[in-house]
Design a protein around this nucleic acid. Structure first.
Lengths: 213, 213
DNA sequence: GCGCGAATTATTCGAGCGTATAATAAGCCT
DNA sequence: AGGCTTATTATACGCTCGAATAATTCGCGC
């Protein structure tokens, strides 16, 4: 008799809520624990509503994956554009990638959960590829601008090789630093990242890592 | 009436089969698809048998995680010990980590599936930590031996910093190379790895990457 | 202020989940 | 060769899953 009262939300905010709830559940209970019912409860709605906004649970998971990756790159790119020189932008980009909120156990859990699905479901593979290439391109752009600023000539091929190496290093430090967070002090990871990148690019010590030139 | 005939296997080989079947299922269907019944079918037994060898499905998953990590480090360490000089051992170790069978989409899927669970279940966190530290230590040992051989003095702290950086780089290249395998040619990744590591360690170009000294 | 479309709830369905237990067949020991 | 242990099968149980459908309530347009 007594039905629950409810609020009719706009499509955009409802979808957002559902995606956020999905990510909460995956982070807290794993992808197996992210059931339609759990997600709905977390979002404060009933299970049936999910299929009103997504044609299947799988489609909602894909939307959630896009959301995770978008916020990761967004955070790093936002940090970078605040730099005034190419050197500063590169520096900020690298530091942002090994600093909260990007280095966050929850984010890593989500990322890993989706990564483990890209060999199973082609839709996830496409989302991954899209994001990987866009990250690599952003990094390559920052790098080449930096080298121009430094008046150091570099072939596009060399620049790409550097981008691949720096990307790997940043990814690896992000992984290491997040998974073994208690092993590293506050800024230890960021310092290590800058020193490692400048070594990787064969720069002089301090050329990138020093606070200011 | 007609019960299935069966073979009584030794405990060791049965456990091995069950773990292998578990990994097959996770790789093929994801961790959600690795159900007791699927795993049993893959192993050619019936579901009930699993609980004769493992006190719960979760314990079997943990055993499977250990197995994955063990075979990864094993492959790299086995490659390393065949080198005759410290330089060669370091070189082989790095190359092995960015070369099949370590770089394998299936392995990466499995790794990611378990990584995504270490924030949820402490048992998985312990297994991760154990393997991470042992990998880091193996790398540190190889590095310090290499520096001794090169007659280059290095403080233990510096050596550890290098180990963390190289570890990150190798992990990152492993990730990148496996996830975007079609982007890289056969030995491109290994070459990039060696060149990047030698830059990271501030070695002369070719000091580590050249085929032989 | 009321009616109507649609967002949301409630309920149901069949399938599949992990686990527990009882029945059975395999194969070693003497 | 035959009995005994136990590895293995078979079956059942209680729950939860994703999805479909029916019933209801919200809130905008007039």
């Amino acid at each position: 008799m007594n039905r629950r009262t409810y609020h009719r939300a706009s499509e955009a905010e409802r979808r957002e809520d559902l995606i956020a709830a999905t990510l909460d559940c995956i982070a807290e209970f794993g992808i197996q624990g992210a059931t339609v019912r759990q997600i709905a409860m977390r979002a404060g709605v009933t299970g049936g509503l999910i299929r009103h906004y997504f044609s299947s649970k799988d489609q909602m998971l894909q939307a959630a994956y896009r959301k995770v990756m978008a916020s990761m790159t967004e955070a790093a790119v936002a940090a970078a554009i605040e730099g005034e020189t190419a050197r500063s932008r590169l520096r900020r980009f690298i530091v942002a990638n090994v600093t909260p909120p990007v280095t966050d156990p929850r984010t890593l859990s989500l990322w890993a959960a989706f990564i483990s699905h890209i060999q199973i479901d082609q839709s996830f593979a496409a989302i991954h590829r899209e994001n990987y290439l866009s990250f690599l391109e952003a990094l390559e752009t920052l790098l080449s601008a930096f080298f121009v600023e430094e008046k150091r000539a570099l072939s596009p091929a060399q620049c790409r090789t550097y981008a691949i190496g720096v990307n790997a290093l940043v990814d690896g430090l992000w992984l290491e630093g997040t998974l073994a967070a208690d092993t590293f002090a506050e800024h230890e990871l960021a310092e290590n990242a800058l020193i490692s990148v400048e070594a990787l690019l064969r720069l002089q010590p301090g050329e990138l890592s020093a606070e200011q030139r």
